[in-house]
């Protein structure tokens, strides 16, 4: 079964002044609900997660929970675990007005890693990298497509976009990270 599952770019990676890599499949679940709901807090609490503050991120183990809008969260997890987690969240929220749906396959995830990772982001997104803290999910655009970025490590930025434009985003990252393109 697993050989049938292919991420958009199957781990394509390029070495420039930083390394840009398509990070393979990632489990993702969209949760739309009243973010103040006790049932939601309880359901997420069962996973060790708490509801993040606006634009924030909370984490537990390999699970990450990001605030996406006033009534939307994104839960990232192991790809194979996503359907099960979504099902249990759905069940826990069955008495509420809520929508829980797996979107793992709709996305592509990239990492930009290296001490100058910020410089790649500076070239493709209207983001003030100096004021992008760890623990913040920043939704913006990568050149011409929608993207969400966050600091996923000391010298690493993660970027998520729609699956269909993964090739475009890889192109952006590769050209922006090319050697000689260091800004400072």
């Amino acid at each position: 079964m697993s050989e049938m599952i292919l991420s958009a770019l199957q781990g394509e990676s390029h070495e420039g002044f930083v390394t840009v890599t398509e990070a393979g499949v990632t489990g993702m679940i969209t949760i739309r609900a009243d973010l103040g709901s006790a049932a939601l807090a309880a359901a997420l609490g069962g996973l060790g997660l708490s509801v993040p503050s606006p634009r924030g991120i909370t984490q537990a183990g390999d699970k990450l929970l990001a605030w996406m809008s006033p009534d939307e969260l994104l839960l990232a997890c192991d790809y194979g675990a996503a359907p099960g987690i979504a099902e249990s969240l759905s069940a826990a929220l069955s008495g509420e007005h809520a929508l829980v749906v797996v979107v793992s396959d709709a996305r592509a995830r990239f990492t930009i890693s290296g001490p100058k990772a910020d410089e790649v982001l500076m070239k493709i997104a209207p983001v003030d990298v100096a004021t992008l803290p760890a623990g913040r999910m920043h939704r913006t655009r990568a050149a011409q497509v929608a993207a969400a970025v966050w600091r996923s490590g000391p010298d690493e930025i993660s970027l998520v976009c729609f699956r269909s434009v993964a090739g475009y985003v890889m192109g952006l990252l590769e050209v922006s990270a090319r050697k000689g393109g260091e800004i400072f």
Partner: peptide, 12 residues
């Protein structure tokens, strides 16, 4: 006013 981000016109 909903997410608090100050953004430029190209994001709107």
């Amino acid at each position: 006013p909903l997410c608090g981000a100050t953004v430029e016109e190209t994001e709107l």
